[in-house]
Nucleic acid binder design. Structure first.
Lengths: 174, 174
DNA sequence: AATTTATTTACAAAAAACGTATTAAAAAAT
DNA sequence: ATTTTTTAATACGTTTTTTGTAAATAAATT
């Protein structure tokens, strides 16, 4: 009977630590995607092999992806804009999304609520480039009824989802 | 005389390959931030030490940053929204940016052209969370005159700046 | 042409990753 | 309640990679 209680306790602790461990790994990699498994394991006192296993799982289920984030300004993109698109008739939505996805200038593409249907954020070299993109690649698409373009004039913050906020909820894994 | 010509040729090739080399490194790291220097060097036929030097420079001047990009949905963020803010009087702009930058829910914050002044994209757990954020953290700020919130209902694309497009211009390093 | 500066490269020591095997724990079945 | 199955954590030796330093080469400056 006493033995049973003991087992229950370890089980409980482990299942809490499980998710907590993933959070800690994610948090460290979020800041520095090249941090070695060895360093991570030292930081949170778990065996290197465990970190590696967890890492592989997190990568495979798409929870995290390690990427090099390139600063657009440094490589010559000086016109960052938000293009809102109104589609009429709405039956064109799917084909428009398909076509827009292909455009290399588009860095973010989503279906939005509000008076427009689609938001497409684009990174262009300059106003000329943006202008040509709009005229030759977007306005020509069948179903594009109206657009509204606004420039991002100064960027104050670009951040990752805050894991501390996520931890408050019960971590529903997809 | 013949020797001199030979030298000139190598020089010329090298200087073209210089910027091209940075592009190639950036392109590979953009896709896989954990790719080893060894692997990169094999891919583009340059000594490992060269790749490493270039890498260190690219990191130090902020051209690229290796980060773990966490999928918001996988960790329980189900309300992704765009909040447009109108500021009156405009003298409050600076303090509002300062305050907004602190909010952990905000993943993107920028000064925008158009009928509103500020765009703040937020990642919240759910509608309740978003609602509380708006009411208790944003609407209460002095100078926030009006806001307009739209939900990102489905995300079709999240991409990095396209290096092929950048290569077309003359790579002005900042 | 000489000097300075920057870039590329080579190499050896240290550190890290990988593959595999082992151990331990949790869940499921009996 | 015990056994079996499945899943997760860990240890360890080998291979690979990174790191620090020094040398060679090229470019820019004088």
């Amino acid at each position: 009977m006493f033995y049973f209680l003991f087992l229950w306790q370890t089980t409980n602790n482990m299942s809490v630590l499980n998710d907590e461990l993933d959070y800690q790994i994610l948090k460290l990699l979020q800041k520095d995607g090249r941090m070695s498994f060895t360093e991570i394991s030292k930081e949170i006192n778990v065996a290197v092999s465990t970190i590696r296993h967890r890492y592989i799982n997190l990568i495979e289920d798409g929870t995290i992806k390690i990427i090099g984030r390139v600063d657009p300004n440094k490589i010559g993109f000086n016109a960052y804009a938000s293009i809102l698109i109104s589609v009429k008739p709405k039956t064109y939505m799917n084909t428009i999304f398909e076509e827009l996805t292909k455009l290399p200038e588009i860095s973010f593409l989503a279906l939005v609520s509000g008076s427009f249907d689609i938001e497409a954020d684009v990174m262009c070299r300059d106003m000329e480039h943006l202008n040509v993109l709009l005229a030759d690649k977007i306005h020509v698409l069948e179903g594009v009824f109206d657009t509204k373009t606004n420039m991002y004039m100064k960027i104050y913050k670009v951040a990752q989802p805050d894991l501390e906020l996520a931890r408050l909820s019960s971590m529903p894994k997809q």
